[in-house]
Design a protein around this nucleic acid. Structure first.
Lengths: 138, 138
DNA sequence: GTTGTTGCAAAACCTTTGCAGCTGG
DNA sequence: CCAGCTGCAAAGGTTTTGCAACAAC
């Protein structure tokens, strides 16, 4: 395994991810890191995000909206993805320990982990829906 | 909603997807459709896959390995992804009806659906592991 | 010094799209 | 015909990578 050297950029990326809870994409994170490091490059952000994922310090979320999202919270928890605004929310739902065991008997191999996303419309967008129906009366 | 016209290419794409159970990517499907339609273009494959997803005749799987996979089986079921060979397997596990209800109380909106992937090493790759240790003795 | 890291730019990769011609209804 | 479909090629968006200069140890 490769030895990691300290880098201010990597620390900043990690700290930034710990401070926010909106599961930013690499690009969104890049935008906010630039306030501290105006010269940082997007390539550096990607390289460090991948390193941090490898070392298990952060997590990558692929939710099917094109770009990967990143999460500074590495505890096993679940996410809610709004199909309208694509926002990714944390859910206050602890690890579903029994899921792997329940599924193991149907698996063509040994289950190490599972990945769950819940899809729906968030409260914010449910609210907007009402406004929309006012804009467009039948 | 748009009216769909018959197209030989779309039927072939759909039929091909129904016949195989390996959850191909658009590109892999393109390769096999080309045997029947040597001139079909990758753009056509993508356009039709998207149409078929919209009409609910097939499903799209995003499992985080870069390219989306497609599934001709639209019944609610789950998948096992091998972290070694990236193969996507069907699991003989019916819909986990209770999952949405259990999670609803922790959700920041209304849950419509869920998406679950199980990760691990498939039997094939577990077998290869043994071979590997023979190749590289301590 | 040696090795890992950076910024930059180019490339790779997957997917979508504009267009002119074709096809199904 | 008209609307939708096709092949082609170009463009789009995301992520990776080669390289020379630089920073950490």
């Amino acid at each position: 395994m490769k030895t990691l050297k300290y880098s201010r950029q990597r620390e900043s990326i990690k700290a930034s991810l710990m401070n926010r809870h909106d599961h930013p994409t690499a690009d969104a994170l890049y935008a906010s890191i630039r306030e501290e490091f105006p010269n940082i490059s997007l390539g550096t952000v990607y390289r460090n995000l991948n390193l941090l994922v490898e070392t298990g310090e952060i997590r990558k979320l692929t939710c099917g909206d094109g770009a990967d999202h990143f999460d500074g919270d590495t505890r096993q928890h679940y996410h809610f993805v709004c199909t309208e605004c694509n926002q990714v929310y944390d859910m206050d739902l602890g690890a579903l320990e029994e899921l792997n065991q329940d599924a193991q008997s149907c698996a063509p191999g040994i289950i190490d982990s599972h990945y769950v996303l819940f899809y729906g419309r968030c409260k914010n967008c449910l609210g907007k829906k009402v406004d929309k129906s006012i804009d467009k009366p039948a």
